[in-house]
Design a protein around this nucleic acid. Sequence first.
DNA 1: ATTTGATTAAAACATATGTTTGAAGTGGTT
DNA 2: AACCACTTCAAACATATGTTTTAATCAAAT
Lengths: 214, 214
Amino acid sequence: MITASALQAGTKQRILDTAEHLFACEGYRGTSLRAITGKAGVNLAAVNYHFGSKRALLEEVIKRRMGPLNQVRRKRLEEIRARSLTEGKRPDIRAVLTAFIEPTILFRESERGAGDFITFIGRSFADPDDTVRTVFHRVINPMVQLLFRTVSEALPNQPKDIIFWRLHFTIGALFHTMHIYGAMKPAFMSMTTYIDARSLVNLIIPYVTAGMKA
Amino acid sequence: MITASALQAGTKQRILDTAEHLFACEGYRGTSLRAITGKAGVNLAAVNYHFGSKRALLEEVIKRRMGPLNQVRRKRLEEIRARSLTEGKRPDIRAVLTAFIEPTILFRESERGAGDFITFIGRSFADPDDTVRTVFHRVINPMVQLLFRTVSEALPNQPKDIIFWRLHFTIGALFHTMHIYGAMKPAFMSMTTYIDARSLVNLIIPYVTAGMKA
DNA sequence: ATTTGATTAAAACATATGTTTGAAGTGGTT
DNA sequence: AACCACTTCAAACATATGTTTTAATCAAAT
């Protein structure tokens, strides 16, 4: 039983890892089960056996990483809110944005394969396929809600709809960065594009902070 | 001959319009030729007859609108550069960004169907499908190059790589806005999301200007 | 050693896709 | 009327896809 479940975990894991990679590179629709199972070295039927369907596999791929990532972001945002409550002063907008953005970008270097996931997520918001957007939306929306609330507390004098749109601009900047970073064509805009994640955080934070306060 | 070419134009146009709409809603890969021809009320073979292939149709859909749009943006950017040259002072960064962004967002209301196109373009940058990205990249890249040059002239003291990344944040904010605007789910972030294009321009310009100058 | 339950394997299924083909239709010209 | 280029149409083609099925395989428990 132990060996059996270990083998199962081996196959499941190989499928998850390969699917994550291919979803990031070719998209959900552009990735066939045959491509996944072929590259993973498992039988075609293994996906339906272990996950039930391609869609269920997608869900697993997203939830596996999004869980831990959301936990970190939630914790940092909640800390800020708690501290702001005890100290009786409003949260600092830069700190709020950092709490959300920093874990997201640094997540790329947290584990093997996480980079693919970040690329995938960065693209998912714009994915025309309802399947992807629905699954993704369900796991990201509570997080964005929390961010919205916290930003509202940091900028209490701003009308809600202005915060709403500026937050969309911020998310747009972040997600765009997420999918171009690490998957960028050489010499786009005739520039070398390499930058380490830490420096990227240091670049985007001032940008979005200035934008939110504009 | 006149009637014949008018009929041809009728079919071609119907295909172009329908394809534009479906590409925006379902994506390039998610849109079958049968869906296009069915909705357009033309025969399945008409696409291959008039355009040669699905890919060539995509190219036509993009070039048809991108031509005029790019012309406006190029003209406005060139005007700024010319004026800056004659007056001997550097371009104003806000004016530069407005020259690029304003025509893009207002383009949605310029003609019937243009809104679909803007949504489609907003998604194309993040499209995992090489076909879409390649075609799209070819028509947008010269424009982005020009924007990069003009922004560099407006911010001569900023290192090029900082401009490079801040421009990416800006493009991310713009493209994200392009595809969520007009296609947004109701009550996202528990807000009504309607806003007219003019007001949206007035919201995004201060945001990206502040970000670029941060 | 045999049985059992879970996993893997190969094949088939039903459907969907982009493309091609060859015939039918269309309208104007000679 | 006969011809013409151009366009439309229905059907077929070849391939790709997610899924299901049925048999083989395997490791552990009896």
